[in-house]
Write a protein that binds this DNA or RNA. Sequence first.
DNA 1: GATGAATGAGCTTTCATTCAT
DNA 2: CATGAATGAAAGCTCATTCAT
Lengths: 191, 191, 191, 191
Amino acid sequence: MEDKKTSITLSAIKAFKEKGIEHTTISDIVKYAGIAQGTFYLYFPSKLSVMPEIAIIMVEKILEELKNHVNISDTFDIKLKKIIEVIFNLTEEYKDIYALIYSGLASSEYLVHWENIYEKYYEAIGGILSNAQDKVEIRSTINPKRYAAILIGLIEASAEKSFLYNEQDEKIIELKKSEVFDFAFRSLTQS
Amino acid sequence: MEDKKTSITLSAIKAFKEKGIEHTTISDIVKYAGIAQGTFYLYFPSKLSVMPEIAIIMVEKILEELKNHVNISDTFDIKLKKIIEVIFNLTEEYKDIYALIYSGLASSEYLVHWENIYEKYYEAIGGILSNAQDKVEIRSTINPKRYAAILIGLIEASAEKSFLYNEQDEKIIELKKSEVFDFAFRSLTQS
Amino acid sequence: MEDKKTSITLSAIKAFKEKGIEHTTISDIVKYAGIAQGTFYLYFPSKLSVMPEIAIIMVEKILEELKNHVNISDTFDIKLKKIIEVIFNLTEEYKDIYALIYSGLASSEYLVHWENIYEKYYEAIGGILSNAQDKVEIRSTINPKRYAAILIGLIEASAEKSFLYNEQDEKIIELKKSEVFDFAFRSLTQS
Amino acid sequence: MEDKKTSITLSAIKAFKEKGIEHTTISDIVKYAGIAQGTFYLYFPSKLSVMPEIAIIMVEKILEELKNHVNISDTFDIKLKKIIEVIFNLTEEYKDIYALIYSGLASSEYLVHWENIYEKYYEAIGGILSNAQDKVEIRSTINPKRYAAILIGLIEASAEKSFLYNEQDEKIIELKKSEVFDFAFRSLTQS
DNA sequence: GATGAATGAGCTTTCATTCAT
DNA sequence: CATGAATGAAAGCTCATTCAT
């Protein structure tokens, strides 16, 4: 078993996915983690204080997925499509958690560090944009990392809304993806 | 009495703004509304069931602000700037609530009606886009209402993140606004 | 049933007498009071916050006992013996509670008002001293109320220690009473 | 190692002084002692079982202070004043702990040994009384050790109450001391 | 309709105690 | 002897919900 803090975090993710954050209790989390009630408090002061830890893991997941799906040799349009694909898929799977992280709701109290957490995410996407600039696939006038933040926001927002209303209709989802692609691609390539 | 329902809703907004949604109790809401504990239940079955009502009011606020600031005679670029301005301002003021509505967290149970609520919002922005198409200010190949949803998502996401980290630095906020404008404007005008 | 706050206070006294303060839980108190767990918190924020209320009742008990046993027509030496009798008896019955009130332990947080609570007690004993001065039974150079405080302290301290070590030996108790009487009486009458 | 037991006891005193006995945990004590949680149990079976050890140290402190301040050559009235001074000073410093020892609250289970602990205290004061009898400074009809107990009770009670209500007003404290002196001195000298 | 005291299920939280290292 | 992470029983506490008035 990995270290206990990670184990609690993973159990929290599992519980949040199943019951929703509102209805998850610390009891649920420790049950999944196979630890005693009191042990939880050795690592976290409250349910929501697990959120930053979750965010770290979620960002790791995203980066891993990006690494697995976005090939350095792809043209930029392919890469952008893959990025959208990855974000949509993860958003679907971790709907509630993602919504919470994304909206920053749990934030008020615990999420001071989030900029650091997301930093790597922005850098990864920023790197892709920068690379595309080098290849003259997108315009050179953008700041890669700053644009990455906007791009991610755009895709996430769209994905969120897609799955929010239980739009499980594959066609509509695909339409949304292509619209987002279109929106972003034009913006990035317009000279 | 419709008045009382509105009064409860406004009190809920006030309480949510002050304490955050997590820590707001029905007791807080009725205190602000100046009514008895039990009275709440004559109008709403639960705390979260107030959310759609709040969403309605929030959308009304947005529409009103748009009406106040976006002039029909403005050119599209001015209009877009104003739209961004309005969304950023409201997001700043109603940060938490907005985040919640936006992320759809309170969702699961009461979100069914939300598409209807947002419908008017999409229509308003869609109308502006449509009008801009008529004047050949933006390309004609977009579907106004569908693009409106994406555009709103983009601006809201950016605004959310701006205020999340207490970036009160006016300059950075302004930079974000201009970046979002740039991102969207290019996308909408690229032929 | 008297009002609920009193009912809780009396139940607390009962529980404290039976289990000792350390081992009494709020559950115990509400069980005796025949009310729900949450009801307790409508009247008191914590277990120890009941103490001032208890102190009031204890002082009332003392005053009542004094009224019942100390006759206005008695000579001062008889009165003093009766006072000692009353304090020893009550101390025996409410050992733990008395110890706590007396030592002021629970005090730190909640007992700001105690001077007021004890005020009546001091006044009652002070009145007896004053009356004895009028009859030239004790020296006139003492301040009745201030001396009352010292006198009460002396008797309480002695009573406390008597019952602390489970000295249930009636003879030793009687010896202590007479020693305290002697100590105080000499002090009050020495010209 | 005897050192460690003393270290735990001193740490307990420190913790009790700072947080009050109610809110002090074994965790607090071991933190101050710089030892591990489990080590505590090698020396004491529970939190309250430290009390007799504390009492021993407190009595030692008192005896030391008495030795430092009460000169064999002083007249009895000076000695009595010094005794009162010492008890008031120590009571002020160790308010809470003193109250506890004095009231015997922590008692129930561990108080058995206390008579032995206080024995030396009574003997010390008793010795002073006895000596004063030899010099015909106080009346010969008292039992020194038994009177010592009463005298100590009187002074402690008065000191306790003085510091309970945060009467930090030096003048009132001084008045109390002189009243207690007067009360006791008359009693001991009245023929 | 309106009230608000009372409820009590069920959650959070603590912390003395243990035991493998 | 010493450790300190882990335990989990047991306490505290909250708050949505009810219902007699």
